[in-house]
């Protein structure tokens, strides 16, 4: 059993260079997702998807003279590199009917491209809007956690390319501790709006890709309370049973009550 690994993406160190995004595309041979200018700050790829497995977000607030982005008082322009969260309880993995999505020996959530049949059920089951089907290819894709590289003892391409160690890769518990230390340090320096995003209290039970960001995670489209949707199946089957009961009972009664012409 190999060590469980994880990412700590620290947006307070990120310079928004997008090297991670490009390195991921290069390594995994992904295409571009269209040449559209969005006007969303410097972000023109907008979101994670089947052809973007790392994505750098740019959040702007009006800066103030005398304060750089590292000033604890004002958060003016932050960059945060997003990726599949590799959830402890992964919606996509739970939902996948083919068993294409598996948990690897490194603890990552991996879509096996030779099994996936493109039913797209994982797409609606991911509470973070990560995995997506490639319409041309037919199958679903997302970050592989560089399973191939990890297998070969290499660091994932995105972390390897990051010039500022904004993406840290390592053993999960060590990284969690590191994240806590870093958070404490930021708070100590007065950066009170720093938060560690790792939804452990919800049914997701934590992730293998946690994020240090400034300000409310919702501005980065990180949901406050993500849930693994399959926790609702019990409830669903219960009402399905009721539905079936109603259907059967109604039919039976109708045929009893009705004449048998």
């Amino acid at each position: 059993m190999s060590a469980t690994t994880a990412f700590l993406t620290d947006s307070t160190l990120c310079i928004g260079c997008k090297a991670c995004e490009v390195a991921c595309k290069e390594w995994n041979n992904l295409g571009d997702d269209g040449l559209a200018w969005t006007g969303f700050s410097y972000d023109n790829t907008a979101e994670l998807g089947h052809s973007t497995w790392r994505h750098v977000k740019f959040v702007e607030h009006p800066p103030e003279i005398g304060h750089g982005g590292n000033s604890p008082e004002v958060s003016s322009w932050t960059f945060s590199s997003d990726v599949c969260k590799h959830c402890e309880e992964a919606g996509c993995l739970e939902a996948c009917p083919t068993g294409s999505i598996v948990r690897t020996e490194f603890g990552g959530v991996y879509v096996q491209p030779d099994i996936c049949n493109g039913c797209s059920y994982c797409v609606v089951a991911c509470p973070f809007g990560v995995v997506q089907r490639n319409k041309e290819d037919g199958r679903a894709f997302k970050c592989t956690f560089c399973y191939d590289r990890q297998k070969a003892g290499l660091t994932p391409a995105c972390a390897h390319a990051c010039p500022t160690e904004s993406i840290k890769f390592g053993e999960i518990e060590q990284l969690r501790a590191e994240a806590e230390r870093r958070l404490a340090k930021l708070k100590e320096s007065g950066m009170n709006d720093a938060v560690l995003y790792d939804p452990k209290e919800t049914s997701v039970r934590g992730t293998h890709a946690f994020f240090l960001t400034r300000g409310d995670p919702r501005q980065y489209n990180l949901p406050l309370k993500p849930e693994v949707p399959t926790i609702y199946t019990k409830q669903g089957w219960k009402s399905a049973a009721i539905g079936a009961g109603v259907l059967a009972a109604a039919t039976m009664l109708a045929f009893i009550a009705g004449d048998n012409r």
Partner: peptide, 25 residues
């Protein structure tokens, strides 16, 4: 509807109670 229709049978490789799609199939 499947992205890769030829792989319909892949759904019958496994049975997952927690996946309504699997149960449904």
């Amino acid at each position: 509807d499947l992205g890769v229709p030829s792989r319909f049978l892949n759904m019958l490789r496994v049975f997952k109670v927690q996946s309504p799609m699997s149960v449904g199939v």
